[in-house]
Every structure is written in structure tokens, then in C-alpha cells.
């Protein structure tokens, strides 16, 4: 079985977010990059679990410039066999999906894993676009996956419950909590990662569908109104009369 895991970088979750160039660019100065959490914790580890059980290979793919390589190496340290970096700045979900599709179309992967969404632009888009570009079934928000031959049973989250479905390989699945238990790379893994293959491929020429026109800071909330714990009726009154939410 050949498994492909799409991994992206993301700003560390505690990063202070600021913008430059007249609020048209995200200020990357001093940003600590991590692997996008759901890619690392669930997509990658699920692929590794399947490989350990059924045999095969786990490859990661990342659209990014050389500065993303520490993130890619972390994936190798956690256990991926090899990695591919498509050499381009990631500017928009369509561009990323088109580049990954262009690379993956002739590689014959059985399952393509992605995280639920990236925590930068919170798009939830790359996986769906990739499936359409490759004409594959797509299951979003997978929380469980068993593979038997070329038939997978996948549980996905739906509003107010879960749905169990059957799908034949090849397909694309986005992963969230429940899929797997996050793994921490050990010393052996970190050493091994240094010599595992990281292939850099040139980016095909693809379109961009959307761009950020300008950024804004989120709306500020006023100061908190403190209410005495002995006067909870006052909170109920404020929720009704002032906030008008009940």
C-alpha cells in the first residue's frame, strides 16, 4: 500500500499575528513554524499505523520553499519513509491542491491523507480540491479508518453524530481527533530523519483562484463587566436587556 500524507507548516499556536505592507501581508518576522497540528497528530500517524499493520510506504508531500524543511524533517522523524517538497510558496488553496495533484496523479497512492484544516487560513479546502482534481472519493473529518484489502470503513463526523461508510481505494480523507494518537519523535527517529530521502520537485505552472486583498485586526471587545457571585440575577438581567441574547 502506498500512503501519501499532505503536511503543511503553520505558525505556532501562540504566535502573535501582525500584518505588514499596508495590511496586505502576514508578517512572518519572528514566526515560529510548526507542522499543522491535525496533519501531524492524526493524518501522519494514521498512515503510519496502517503501514505498520499492512506494510507499504508513507510519503509526505509539502508545497513550500526551503524554509519548510525543518517541518518536513519532523514528519520523517515521526516515521514517514520519505518526503517530497514541491518548490513553491503556498499562496492559495487551489494552487496547493493543483501542485499536489500534478505530482500525485502518476504515483498511484492508495490513500491520500490530509489534516482537517490549516490553522493559518482555516480553509478546509485543499483536500476537497485535490479529490476533484484526481477524480477521487473524498471523506472529510474522518475519526476512524479500517482498511481491508482495497475496501476501507471510515467513520466521519457529521453535525450531531457520526456516519460510518465504505469506500474503495484510492480516495482522499481528511483527519481529525479520534483518528490516531499523536506521537512524539524519539532520538532514533530524529537521527534517522537526517538521512531519509527528501526529494525537491519543481512546481508546475498552475492558477491561483483567490488572494487576500487586505487584512484587518479582529474587533476588540470592550472591558469585561464583572458581576458579584451573590447577584447572579443581575447577569440574567444583562443578558436579557443589554446583550439581548436570551
Amino acid at each position: 500500500m502506498k500512503f501519501l500524507v499532505c503536511v503543511s507548516k503553520a505558525p505556532d499556536t501562540t504566535t502573535k499575528i501582525t500584518f505588514t505592507d499596508n495590511n496586505t501581508k502576514f508578517n512572518e518576522d519572528k514566526v515560529q513554524w510548526i507542522m499543522n497540528p491535525t496533519d501531524e497528530w492524526y493524518a501522519l500517524v494514521k498512515a503510519l499505523e496502517l503501514k505498520e499493520k499492512l506494510g507499504g510506504t508513507v510519503t509526505t508531500v509539502t508545497v513550500g520553499k526551503a524554509d519548510v524543511e525543518p517541518v518536513i524533517r519532523k514528519g520523517l522523524a515521526i516515521g514517514a519513509d520519505d518526503a517530497v517538497r514541491i518548490d513553491a510558496d503556498d499562496v492559495d488553496a487551489y494552487q496547493v491542491a493543483a501542485l499536489i495533484a500534478d505530482y500525485a496523479k502518476s504515483e498511484g497512492y492508495d490513500i491520500i491523507f490530509t489534516g482537517k484544516e490549516t490553522i493559518n487560513y482555516n480553509g478546509f479546502m485543499v483536500a476537497g480540491m485535490l479529490s476533484e482534481l484526481l477524480d477521487l472519493p473524498y471523506i472529510s473529518l474522518g475519526v476512524k479508518l479500517d482498511l481491508n484489502g482495497n475496501t476501507a470503513t471510515v467513520v466521519r463526523e457529521i453535525e450531531g453524530g457520526e456516519e460510518t461508510l465504505e469506500v474503495k481505494t484510492p480516495f482522499v480523507v481528511s483527519c481529525q481527533k479520534g483518528m490516531a494518537e499523536a506521537r512524539i519523535p524519539n532520538m532514533r527517529g530524529i537521527m534517522a530523519a537526517r538521512t531519509k530521502p527528501l526529494k525537491v520537485v519543481a512546481a508546475a505552472s498552475v492558477d491561483t483562484y483567490t488572494t487576500v486583498h487586505h487584512f484587518e485586526a479582529p474587533k476588540e471587545r470592550g472591558n469585561v463587566k464583572l458581576i458579584s457571585p451573590d447577584n447572579v440575577e443581575e447577569l440574567v438581567r444583562l443578558l436579557h436587556e443589554e446583550a439581548k441574547v436570551i
Binding site: I17, F19, I119, N120, Y121, N122, D207, F215, P218
Partner: peptide
Amino acid sequence: AVFSGKGVANFTFAT
């Protein structure tokens, strides 16, 4: 909202 609510982005379309 982008960056998990720490920013707001106004997107335009090339399509």
C-alpha cells in the same frame, strides 16, 4: 476570520 480568529482577511477572486 484567519489565523484562528487572530486576524480577519478580505479575499478577492481571480476567477
